[in-house]
Each structure stands twice: as structure tokens, then as C-alpha cells.
């Protein structure tokens, strides 16, 4: 427990140092949020409040930016983060059915993480691999031309 708290403190320290290193914080909110998500993995309320106070902007404004851009997330990603393409090409080739299977096999919802922190699913719009449609990725690994039947076995490898 003490180690986790210390780890968290170090993360806040790193973020603080980064903000302090900026010559002027004006107009740098998105850059700082990128950095913060890099450090913490996600942007919980606590981090957003910290950034607001530090950069002298309202918390509402910080949250406004976080909620606008789909890149930013307030949910911690799962240990196994699945990114599924829901772009046009994948969609017409059955991404919806793949997604249904993924949800069934992992118990996660799009944009959410399972309570045990194991799986999360992120819906994306085109990852530039339309030739492999339908496609999803787990970490660096790309699964292309997947059929709904294959999903169970793929997920089993990560359980």
C-alpha cells in the first residue's frame, strides 16, 4: 500500500515538474493532458483537479477538453486493452459481430474496463488497415480478417 502511495506521489511530482518546465502555461492545456495521460495511463478527477489548480484554469474547462477528445480517457485501461476498428470498411465486413463476441468473452463494454481491471475495449475509427478488415489489436498484436468464431480462442490466450 505504502509503495502504491509513493508511486502516485512520484507521478504527481513528475507532472508538476513538467508543468513548471513550460515557459508559459497559456494555451498548453492539451499538451499537459497528453503528458499526464502518459504518466498516469488515464486522467482521473484527481489529476484533472491538480492540473486545473496548477495551470490556473477552471476544472470545468479541463474536464471540457478531456471529455471532447476521444484520445483522453478517465477510465484506467485494462491490463489487456483491446482496440477494435469500427470504421466503415471494418463495419461492413462485420466488426459489429466481432465486437459482440469480444464483449461476451471479456465482459467489458466499449470505453469501459472490467471490474477486475483485466480487460478493456476501445472503439476506434479506422486504424489504416482496411485490407485486414475486420480488425482489432491487443497491445502491439494485430488480429486481421477475424471471424466471430475465432474470438473465443484469441481471448482465451489472454485469460
Amino acid at each position: 500500500m505504502a509503495a502504491i502511495i509513493q508511486q502516485k506521489e512520484e507521478k504527481f511530482k513528475e507532472l508538476e515538474q513538467y508543468i513548471d518546465s513550460l515557459p508559459d502555461t497559456k494555451g498548453e492545456l492539451i499538451r499537459v493532458l497528453h503528458k499526464a495521460q502518459g504518466i498516469f495511463g488515464f486522467l482521473p478527477e484527481e489529476v484533472q483537479r491538480f492540473i486545473a489548480k496548477k495551470m490556473k484554469v477552471s476544472t470545468a474547462k479541463v474536464f471540457g477538453v478531456v471529455s471532447f477528445y476521444s484520445f483522453f480517457t478517465m477510465e484506467p485501461k485494462g491490463e489487456v486493452d483491446i482496440s477494435i476498428c469500427l470504421g466503415t470498411a471494418c463495419y461492413v465486413r462485420g466488426a459489429e459481430k466481432i465486437l459482440t463476441e469480444l464483449k461476451k468473452e471479456t465482459g467489458a463494454e466499449v470505453g469501459k474496463t472490467t471490474p477486475n481491471g483485466k480487460f478493456s475495449i476501445t472503439g476506434l475509427r479506422c486504424i489504416g488497415a482496411c485490407g485486414l478488415a475486420p480488425v482489432f489489436t491487443i497491445g502491439e498484436k494485430v488480429y486481421g480478417r477475424v471471424t466471430p468464431e475465432q474470438v473465443k480462442d484469441i481471448i482465451a490466450q489472454y485469460k
Partner: peptide, 16 residues
């Protein structure tokens, strides 16, 4: 207040 979310979900609301 701030504008939050996008598209049909866009709304003026408070932090979190």
C-alpha cells in the same frame, strides 16, 4: 461551466 462532450452529447455542464 464548460462545454463538454461532442455531437449529440455536447452539453454545457460542470466539471465531472
Amino acid at each position: 461551466l464548460s462545454g463538454i462532450n461532442r455531437g449529440f452529447n455536447a452539453v454545457v455542464s460542470s466539471a465531472f
